[in-house]
Computed example of a mutant assay.
Amino acid sequence: MDNIPTETSFFRDLQVFEALRQSIFPELLRRHRLDRQLNLWSAACSSGQEAYSLAILLRDYFPLLAQNWTLNFLASDVSETMLAKARSGIYDDLEVHRRLPPKFLRRYFHQEGSQWVVSDEIRLMVQFQQIDLLQPLPPLPTMDVIFLRNLLIYFDRPTQAEILNKMRQVLAPDGYLLLGATETPLRCDTRFKPVAVDRAVFFQIRPPDDAAGGRSRHTGS
């Protein structure tokens, strides 16, 4: 997996983050209002922009999470080089000005010379760990949301099925799997079903009595 391209950016595919902000995270907060715990996994985090985008989204729009909730936010990659960059939280002008909203740049970064550094309050929300998805997974909590965007396209169908099976093992029964815009698990794992959330598509584990093919629904409708 070390030769997989590392294309990424802050807030890539804005409709995904809008769906998370308007529908997915409010639903999860309602669902977990008693246990007050949220488990997230960015399973191919590259140099960290996706993970930090999600952390910024949560901190900015759901500030109560920082008070009396337990947020377990894992970001993993196979490349230690990418993880070292992610842990540092240091990015250049091109990286922060590509898609990052200016209000978030002002609020959650500070400039050091020609580079921009993620604030500690955001950086410390994320735990970075080396995980090779082609190997057995380490012990993980049951995940409410798994982000696995733009990785499956680089593998053949048997390998895709292997990776998706691992995602299914750790995804909560009513949790959400997010893939890239051109990716779908349905060609190699029909145990997932698509779920339309606003203008984005997520995937959930199909209940045992759900007929193959499934139906989409709008969260919060």
Rank of each mutant, 00 (worst) to 15 (best):
W69E: 09
P158S: 01
D93I: 08
L148E: 06
K103F: 13
L177M: 07
Q135R: 12
L137A: 01
M143Y: 12
D132T: 12
F202Q: 02
Q129S: 03
V117P: 03
V118G: 05
P138E: 02
D144T: 10
L178I: 13
L71T: 12
E183A: 05
D189P: 08
I90L: 09
M125T: 07
S114L: 14
F202N: 01
L105E: 13
A200N: 12
F104K: 12
K166V: 10
R191H: 14
G113L: 12
R157H: 05
L133C: 00
P185D: 05
R87G: 02
E112Q: 14
T142G: 12
I122S: 01
R106T: 14
V170M: 06
E162A: 12
V126Q: 08
R168V: 00
L133Y: 00
A172Y: 10
S88E: 10
L124Y: 09
A172H: 12
Q169W: 09
V126C: 07
L105I: 13
F128C: 01
R98L: 11
L134F: 04
L186S: 04
P136S: 03
F192T: 13
L83K: 05
L137Y: 01
A181S: 09
Q135I: 04
Y176C: 03
V195I: 15
L83S: 08
V117Q: 12
L105S: 11
L186Y: 08
D174A: 14
W116E: 05
L178D: 01
Q135W: 04
T190N: 15
D174G: 13
E121A: 09
L83D: 04
I163V: 09
F147W: 14
Y91F: 14
V145N: 07
D92T: 08
T184C: 03
R107L: 14
L124P: 02
T142N: 13
R157G: 00
V78M: 05
T190Y: 13
R107V: 05
D120L: 07
Q130H: 04
L171W: 04
P102N: 07
P136E: 05
E183D: 04
L171E: 04
D77I: 00
T190D: 15
P141I: 10
L171A: 07
L74D: 02
E121D: 06
E162K: 09
R168M: 05
V126M: 02
L178E: 01
Q204Y: 06
Y176T: 01
M167V: 13
R199L: 15
I122T: 02
D189W: 09
F109D: 14
L171C: 05
E121F: 00
Q130I: 07
Y154S: 08
A161S: 14
E121C: 07
Q67R: 14
N150I: 03
P207K: 07
Q169P: 08
R149S: 11
F155M: 04
L164I: 06
P136K: 02
G113E: 12
E112R: 13
E80M: 07
E80I: 09
R149I: 06
Q129F: 00
Q111F: 08
D189V: 09
L148P: 03
L178H: 10
D92V: 07
R107A: 15
Q135Y: 05
S119W: 00
